[in-house]
């Protein structure tokens, strides 16, 4: 029984370290570039963030532009100098976007990741269920 417990723990530990090693940029809220000087703020389920405030900073971390997105979640700014764009909808969601950095890194596939996590929890439950039953008999 102890062996099972060790295997399960090992699997969980390995899973916990491998998964976050993949670069992830899938925030609950995302900033997407439409064209130079034009970004759209969206949530990861595809809906538009209509009340987000966007702040644009230059290389020196100084604020160069600030404003609300329009009803389509779009915000326009002067692309000269712009280095970092931060969006905040004031409800606890916040996204940051570094201009000219490749944003197209693969996010974790949602379905399989959730399935893996759930099987991890299921495995722990099963192992301990068996341990307890083994003691009882």
């Amino acid at each position: 029984m102890l062996k099972h417990f060790k295997t399960a723990t090992m699997m969980l530990v390995v899973a916990m370290f491998i998964l976050p090693a993949t670069p992830v940029l899938a925030h609950l809220m995302l900033i997407e570039t439409l064209e130079e000087g034009k970004v759209q703020v969206v949530y990861d389920d595809g809906t538009v963030a209509r009340r987000a405030e966007v702040v644009v900073y230059n290389e020196q971390d100084e604020e160069i532009s600030r404003g609300q997105v329009d009803t389509e979640g779009v915000f326009e700014y002067s692309p000269v100098e712009a280095a970092v764009i931060v969006a905040d909808d004031g409800l606890g969601h916040r996204a940051q976007y570094v201009v000219e950095e490749d944003q197209h890194q693969a996010a974790l596939p949602r379905g399989p990741t959730i399935a893996l996590v759930l099987s991890g929890f299921g495995l722990i439950a099963l192992v301990f269920h068996r341990r307890v039953r083994g003691k009882g008999s």
């Binding site: 929890f121 299921g122 722990i124 439950a125 099963l126 301990f128 269920h129 341990r131 307890v132 003691k135």
Partner: peptide
């Protein structure tokens, strides 16, 4: 306790 772990985990 060990018997609480399955429930907590699930």
């Amino acid at each position: 306790k060990e018997e609480e772990i399955p429930r907590t985990s699930l």
